[in-house]
Write a protein that binds this DNA or RNA. Structure first.
Length: 597
RNA sequence: GGCCCCGUAGUUCAAUGGAUAGAAUAGCGGUUUCCUAAACCGUAGAUCCAAGUUCGAUUCUUGGCGGGGCUACCA
């Protein structure tokens, strides 16, 4: 943040003054000095050698001398090979800590201070079954990315595109009519999405059975799959839906509503929300006009059967269908339409899609088509692609295709948190409501942190047991650190020890204290970086480092029993600010932090 | 077959082309007159292979090997 920028500017002018050359920011590489070496920040001088035309050591020395005589904040410097290690003085670090203390409470950039609006589409479930583990990664990423954007001063619009129409929901409807006996979420005391999902499973079961029967009668697999009566029923139902048959339509509305009610519960439990929900039944016709326009302009072409295609072979891709022979649209057509609609409706600067990596090709094609159509915003679509999440046991028997239900998993996490708290004898003096709320924060925090800390594009294994461990790189460990900080502050308050707003004198900060200030000072630069890269993982790994650093600091020093008041004040401020920043960082990840646990 | 992504300690994850590749966990050995032992300290252990680019490569390029995905008039 400020510290690095400040240094970076000074180094720029050093180079200009020493070698008479203006350099770009890229050429200045400043990093936090590694622990083994003395210093706070390190300049890598190798990139500057071409300009100085001198040996690494000499170049580093010249820059070091220049900085020392021109920047009062510089205490000393040392050189190891091509690395210039710079130490900043005590009063500088006191100022940094004071700045943090004054600004951190205000949080982040003002909303919309950048003047940019960015849409984040995430979740996008089908309405024929409940959310599963993959949706959890999707939802958490989307929600956190939106917060990162807000923290950087952008307007973030969170939207969900619900796939509420198509053959899949008709399958559930057919099965419900066939086997349902009028069951509802109320009669079965079951979440609506689970009930509808149950019928989807029943449909698939019956479908497989009928296919087997037909095969016994001598039909081939392909024939049987097309001729099974139940699939014909589902297709008939889809046709009736498209013709707005009133019976079918109202059943469709009823069952979808069950599902939405169920989804709402899941989203609420997960702590995610949307600014707007789009429904495919209302958007699936969009895009056709644009395609027809493109056809007139010769960007697309029509085949003899009447279907419309785009030829992307010059761009190293395939031909892609845009309108079927019967004139109906496909997924791509709809995405062209909705993107166009959204950009004009919201005056968007960027549109981020949180979608699994199996659709990378789709989004590549979408962007390409849109830029062929001449939309200037085509380059402002981002596909944040993420990999699969597995459970440890899923690795063994991945054949099954068994899905992990989101509701079940969250419930299990909270239950585990409860058991562990009990086992450790915690929460004994909390009342039931408090305990329930803390246990929920811990259980879900474990899940969220474990998933978010991993680079999105990688496939990952979610290990529930490991995630909820109170040791290690886990959510609960960070939450625990925060809780302990709050405990220190509470005790200070009880003993009438005030925590000062700012540090009055410039104390010498060494070792752990100094490391902690350094880490704290880097928070905003991590938020910026994470915002640019749409990477919650960056924040997660940062906040873990911070929590670990505080733990060691905490262990090494008596905070409240420190006889020297000035030093005690310093440590109290450090504790408070660490707590504040942990809370802010966890907020960015969508993770709640209890003040005791 | 073509295209895309991934490959790092036993395991789960890090590392804008930078210093001796970091953590955590599991293992082994320690620490309790201490504000939360749900802690802390020590120890051992890894870049899939081969070439290339350069002051320097886990990172970039090429070729292998291994894992996953896409390659529907499905959504």
């Amino acid at each position: 943040m400020l510290v690095e920028q400040h240094l970076s500017q000074s180094i720029k002018s050093a180079v200009t003054s020493l070698y008479g050359v203006n350099i770009e920011d890229k050429q200045i590489q400043i990093q936090k000095t590694k622990r083994e070496f003395e210093g706070d920040f390190t300049l890598v001088v190798f990139p500057l050698l071409k300009i100085s035309k001198k040996k690494p050591e000499d170049t580093a020395n010249e820059i070091g001398e220049y900085l020392k005589s021109n920047l009062p904040a510089i205490q000393s410097f040392n050189i190891v090979k091509g690395f210039l290690n710079i130490s900043l003085n005590h009063s500088f670090w006191s100022n940094v800590l004071n700045t943090i203390a004054q600004t951190v409470d205000y949080g982040f950039a003002k909303p919309n201070s950048s003047g940019k609006t960015k849409m984040v589409e995430f979740s996008s479930p089908n309405t024929n079954k409940p959310l599963h583990l993959g949706h959890i990664r999707n939802n958490l990423l989307g929600f956190s990315v939106a917060r990162l954007l807000e923290a950087n001063g952008h307007g973030a619009v969170k939207v969900n595109l619900v796939n509420d129409r198509g053959i899949h929901i008709c399958k559930s409807m057919v099965a419900w009519k066939k086997f349902g006996k009028g069951e509802t979420p109320e009669t079965n005391n079951l979440k609506g999405d689970h009930l509808v999902g149950h019928y989807y499973v029943l449909f698939e079961k019956e479908y497989r059975k009928q296919v087997e029967e037909l095969k016994l009668q001598g039909l081939s697999e392909e024939e049987a799959k097309v001729k099974a009566p139940i699939i014909l029923e589902a297709q008939e139902m889809l046709r009736k839906w498209e013709a707005k048959d009133s019976d079918v339509y109202s059943l469709w509305e009823t069952m979808n509503q069950w599902v939405y009610d169920g989804f709402d519960v899941t989203y609420k439990e997960m702590g995610v929300e949307f600014d707007k929900i789009y429904y495919e039944s209302q958007t699936y016709l969009l895009g056709r006009e644009i395609v027809n326009d493109g056809l007139k302009k010769g960007i697309f072409h029509r085949k003899t059967d009447g279907s419309v295609w785009v030829d992307l072979t010059d761009d190293g891709l395939d031909e892609k269908l845009l309108l079927r022979a019967d004139g109906t649209s496909v997924y791509m057509t709809q995405d062209i339409g909705t993107a166009s609609q959204r950009f004009s409706e919201y005056q968007l600067d960027d549109h981020i899609y949180i979608v699994g990596n199996e659709q990378e090709y789709h989004f590549k094609v979408l962007k390409l088509i849109l830029s062929k159509l001449g939309y200037s915003w085509a380059n402002h679509l981002y596909h944040l692609s993420y990999g699969m999440v597995q459970l440890p046991e899923g690795k063994m028997k991945s054949r099954e295709g068994k899905v992990v239900d989101a509701d079940d998993l969250m419930e299990e996490m909270v239950a585990t948190a409860y058991d562990m708290s009990k086992e450790f004898g915690k929460l004994n003096d909390a009342n039931e409501d408090e305990a329930a709320s803390i246990v929920k924060m811990v259980g879900l925090g474990a899940l969220k942190y474990f998933i978010l800390k991993v680079d999105p594009k990688k496939n990952m294994t979610f290990n529930p047991k490991e995630s909820i461990d109170f040791n290690g790189n886990t959510g609960p460990f960070i939450q625990y650190t925060h809780a302990r900080i709050q405990s220190v502050l509470r005790k200070a308050n009880e003993s009438n020890i005030p925590v000062p707003q700012t540090l009055s004198s410039s104390l010498s900060m060494e070792g752990k204290e100094r490391e902690l200030v350094k880490l704290l000072s880097m928070f905003t630069s991590y938020v910026e970086q994470a915002g640019e890269q749409l990477s919650p993982a960056l924040i997660a790994n940062y906040v873990y480092d911070l929590a670990k650093e505080y733990n060691q600091f905490y262990h090494d020093f008596s905070i409240l029993k420190e006889p020297n008041e000035a030093i005690r004040d310093l440590r109290l401020i450090l504790s408070r600010e660490t707590g504040n920043i942990i809370r802010l960082a966890m907020w960015l990840l969508g993770i709640d932090v209890p003040s005791r646990m």
